[in-house]
Design a protein around this nucleic acid. Sequence first.
DNA 1: TAGACGATTGTCT
DNA 2: GACAATCGTCTAC
Length: 206
Amino acid sequence: MALTAAFFSGRPTEEIAKSLLGTELIFHHEVGDVGGLIVETEAYLGDEDTAAHAFGHRQTHANRALFGAPGTLYFYTMRGLILMNLICQPAGTPQGILIRALQPTRGVDLMRQNRPREGVELTNGPAKLTAALGITDLRWNELALTAAPFLLQPRKNPIAIAQSPRIGVSQGSWHDRELRFFVAGNPYLSKSRKRDQDWTTMGWQA
DNA sequence: TAGACGATTGTCT
DNA sequence: GACAATCGTCTAC
């Protein structure tokens, strides 16, 4: 059964970030479905999180989606690249989860057209996966997940969930908080090392 | 394989 | 005009 808004409230954002691992993100493209299993996420905890866009309850036109209802989509650009977040917690509590990497499951040929790279390079980074899915603008920012052409379907369970400090967060008192969660051993992780990759199980339970 | 660095673009002050 | 939740390339080991 597909995830709905209820999935994104009623428990801590870190918990939700972990339970998204193994969920298939499906995007209904005009010319066919594309998608993959979520293998890496990061939690951004709003007001008090020095790395979050809403730190200090800062609200601008660009980050307004963070203050939306659970299940709201937050897309934003970074050096001309597009990153995708899912909003957790009730409206007014600006917490979100960044989708950092996917293991492709469907529409791989289409994704390769969108982003001509081979193997894990197709989707092993937050801006890489949006490019591969074919997301080229912010038209779905601030929309509810259920109102946009996206679908989240639970598929697999990780053998082990690992965590680490967030990537690209080097300043502020929260820089070393372990709010990045990933499927241990999955080859599609950003920053993954070859010797850590398990191509037999891909990090999933049988 | 790890680390450094330059490119590049939208947003905010 | 400064900066950023990144990417791709290059270099050294």
